[in-house]
Design a protein around this nucleic acid. Structure first.
Lengths: 156, 156
DNA sequence: TGGGAATTCTCAGTATACTTCTCAACCACG
DNA sequence: CGTGGTTGAGAAGTATACTGAGAATTCCCA
């Protein structure tokens, strides 16, 4: 099976390409795609614990904690222990985090669109639908479906 | 733009899922997808220098050097300086590397097929074609096309 | 109420992936 | 020649991603 017929290989290359595009569009902010996804989720679910956040964004718990620690270091996120359950660490965006999230929105959307820009509308929708189908069919950790059929609620 | 409509987010999740599947299928070998891709390329291009290999496999050259160093540590690859150009480090599979590459073939193919197993034949082919189109359209580092229209020659 | 089970997070270790800086070797032009 | 530009590697630093081990806390049931 040649490299270019291996789905995993193609997905890896696409992942790389998107990372590069995101970095280009968002160079002035020094925020990575994963960090942006975490910030997006925190904007909708303030004071989220790390486990829930990891599930939402599709991260390993350990990795989610790493990302949050780096965001906290940059002053974009505030982490503090929960009063109700002292095992938990709750995170929320700081005002600066919210500002940067909003300022980056345009660049993020451009990066997303550039990746699939070579596709016609129909093919693009088909492509997104196929990826969604593969993720939902293959990811055992995926949360149960909500009413609208998407794994999570709509966001911004 | 919600997470689940962002092409980059979906690609990242798919990349993760494939990594997990590959690890499952190939657990007994302790070889990662990237290491396997490098070994595949070395099987077809013995005594390849690190730069050419990085281009073939779609890696950064420093990263390719890291991967080769780990493979050499496991005794699967032999690295030695070129006689003609002493800047170059040439790599080739050891006999043990060749053996393991062949022994893993079945597991690797299973991992690749599992990722796209939820798709019907037509949709699967469409999906691969779309990914290929996106990579070729978006990757500035891609080598010039060969006669057969694929970026590199056919492999195993 | 007591104690084991489950949950939540941390820490350590490793692999991928990229950037930037540095150095050595090659090559081509004058 | 020989000097200067190009190219191939290495080293350092950072982010993502996962595993396994461990600690603290909470939960639940007997």
């Amino acid at each position: 099976m040649p490299l270019w017929r291996r789905p995993g290989f193609l997905v890896r290359r696409l992942h790389q390409i998107h990372g590069a595009m995101f970095a280009e569009e968002c160079a002035s902010f020094d925020i990575t795609p994963v960090q942006y996804a975490v910030m997006t989720t925190l904007a909708h679910q303030p004071d989220c614990d790390q486990n829930s956040l990891a599930v939402e964004v599709g991260l390993d718990r350990t990795n989610a904690a790493d990302v949050l620690r780096r965001l906290a270091r940059q002053g974009l996120v505030l982490r503090r222990a929960s009063g109700l359950d002292r095992r938990r660490v709750l995170s929320r965006l700081t005002p600066r985090g919210t500002t940067i999230l909003e300022a980056m929105q345009g660049a993020m959307v451009r990066a997303q669109q550039r990746l699939v820009a070579p596709l016609a509308d129909v093919e693009r929708e088909q492509f997104l639908a196929t990826m969604l189908k593969l993720i939902e069919a293959n990811d055992p950790t995926l949360p149960p479906r909500r009413a609208n059929g998407r794994p999570t609620q709509a966001q911004k």
